[in-house]
């Protein structure tokens, strides 16, 4: 079996999930310059809500992708409502506050959501019911499962949709204007508050899908699952250049591939001294390296420092 190709495929699948989450970080950061610490938790809520739905449907004998889609139909609105609520309660009152205040309230929201989820779903790992087809396809010495194919397609469709939304619609233009200069956008008749709320809604919707997909992929969910995923996705967003949509997508895919290649080859290269348990180290080292060489990320605009 071709290990290289296999790791690239796995990496792309994992990376497309990172990318979906990273988009949420980067869109919010682009407009209000806030690291939305609670975003990973929104992904977790998406995963657990869809899991609850899927479990109930599976218990009644339904199976296949329709169940996942029904789960999504509930998880997406739930996460959108959650995202809007977070923005309203924890971020909007702090928009003029010193820079670290919203960061702390974001951390507060993140802890609160984790604990709420633990109260609702319990603290144990929840396993997804076995409802998805296990078909595998061989390509050039590697295998790709149906779940992986679906994740890749779903992520690609969503990212294309987002690209069109931001670049080709009136709403997207308002978003870009607000990101560039909220004050002037406001003068041009853009309701900046509404645009910020919409941005949170779109990001949370994507997070819900990412959550459901990540649950279906790894077959397991837990109230702490959002933390590392969120951290990685944020890393991906920074890697690509925070604030840039293309950067988030590229950063996500790149991070996924790097991590999986690292996990696959580290043991071999170092004769077993450094094994796959260091794959996270590899990801973060890569990030440090990229930032040191290109401080604004891969696709980030060179910021002109305003005096």
């Amino acid at each position: 079996m071709d290990i290289f190709l296999q790791q690239v495929i796995n990496g792309l699948v994992q990376g497309s999930i990172y990318a979906l989450v990273a988009l949420g970080y980067t869109m919010v950061y682009g407009i209000i310059e806030l690291v939305n610490f609670a975003h990973g938790e929104v992904v977790m809520v998406g995963a657990l809500v869809s899991l609850s739905v899927i479990e109930r449907l599976a218990a009644r004998g339904y199976s296949g992708w329709t169940v996942i889609v029904i789960g999504l139909l509930l998880a997406v609105p739930a996460c959108i409502a959650l995202g809007l609520g977070i923005e309203r309660v924890a971020y909007r009152p702090l928009r003029k506050a010193p820079r670290l205040a919203p960061l702390i309230s974001a951390i507060g929201v993140s802890i609160a959501l984790q604990q709420l989820a633990a109260l609702i779903w319990g603290r144990n790992y929840l396993h997804y019911p076995d409802i998805l087809p296990k078909t595998q396809y061989a390509i050039g010495g590697a295998v790709i499962s149906e779940v992986q194919v679906v994740i890749l397609i779903a992520a690609a469709v969503l990212m294309a949709g987002l690209w069109i939304l931001v670049q080709r619609t009136r709403l997207g233009r308002a978003m870009r204007a607000s990101a560039q200069n909220p004050a002037v956008a406001g003068l041009m008749g853009v309701d900046v508050n509404r645009i910020i709320a919409t941005t949170f809604a779109v990001g949370s919707g994507l997070a819900a899908v990412a959550g459901a997909l990540v649950g279906a992929y790894y077959n397991v969910g837990n109230h702490t699952m959002g933390f590392l995923l969120g951290l990685k996705a944020f890393t991906a967003a920074v890697l690509g250049g925070i604030g840039s949509l293309g950067g988030a997508m590229l950063g996500g895919l790149l991070l996924g591939v790097i991590e999986n290649l690292g996990a696959g080859y580290m043991g071999k290269l170092t004769d077993g001294a450094v094994g796959s348990n260091y794959s996270d180290v590899f990801a973060f080292l890569m990030l440090v390296l990229v930032l040191v060489l290109r401080p604004s990320g891969l696709l980030g605009e060179r910021g002109i420092e305003k005096v």
């Binding site: 690291v35 890393t235 996270d280």
Partner: peptide
């Protein structure tokens, strides 16, 4: 030394990554 040229939020994520790296090494 290598990271202090970075802007605020980038510095934050790099230090965060550094913290995790140390922990992972301690674990392994």
């Amino acid at each position: 030394a290598p990271t202090l040229g970075l802007r605020g939020d980038y510095l934050a994520i790099v230090t965060m990554g550094f913290g995790e790296i140390i922990r992972i090494f301690l674990r392994n």
